[in-house]
Amino acid sequence: MNRQRSTFLITILCFGYAFLYIPIVMVVIYSFNDSRIVSVWGGFSFRWYLQLLENRQIIEAALLSLRIAFVSATVATALGTLAGLALARMGRFRGRILFTGMIAAPLVMPEVITGLSLLLLFVSLQDLVGWPGGRGAATITIGHITFSMAYVAVIVQSRLMSLDESLQEAAMDLGGRPFRVTLDITLPIIAPALLSGWLLAFTLSLDDLVIASFVSGPGASTLPMWIFSKIRLGVTPDINALATVIITIVSLGVVIAGWLMFRQEKQRQRDVQ
């Protein structure tokens, strides 16, 4: 009976995973295609990867994307941690659920709306105070901070909820002032959550096309924006190579973040015992 069920399950599972991963695998395979025509296999080659390295536009867009991702992930982690700490510290107060919900709302907000509202904000700010004097890397970074901060806050907050409050009380009892206790005890213990939050924010920023398109200006194209504008003219094989590189980076980030969370969970279970 067990065997029967597993055959059935495995078939279903195979279909599911095939549906999810065949397109990605195709991209990876065709990135090594020697032929200039995307859909015809012309033998194995690294030529599109080499061509990527020579394409200044791509390199610039990639560097811009990485820079934006790094800055926005760092700022989002700092702000998200503060928000998570504040929400976890305040204890129970009236409207707490509303506030917690409001922190998480950007997670489900359609990106188009986030992008549109940010664009409106930047435009009207520029009219009112003269800042930002044009849109570009800075406005994209701010846009990415606003939505990835929500992810970090949720991760940090859920970690803090499961943190034994008496740890912080014990540190205070031993003479640590509240701020020192946060530095000495709280942050080191939740550090893995912060790191996985940072990695998540980093990959989100690297992936984002919609918000970046809204709040970007002339001259500032992130990698996804560049790819998107390029395939409107037709898919070229070097895009496949680029996509493979991005897939590698993103999946590395996700794997490390997942591994950190897993380890942290195990550590916590060990501490509970």
Binding site: D164, S166, L167, E169, A170, D173, I185, P188, I189, D271
Partner: peptide
């Protein structure tokens, strides 16, 4: 000083 029921030994 207090000894907590959960002991609250700093895990790190």
């Amino acid at each position: 000083n207090m000894m907590f029921q959960s002991y609250a030994v700093f895990p790190h």
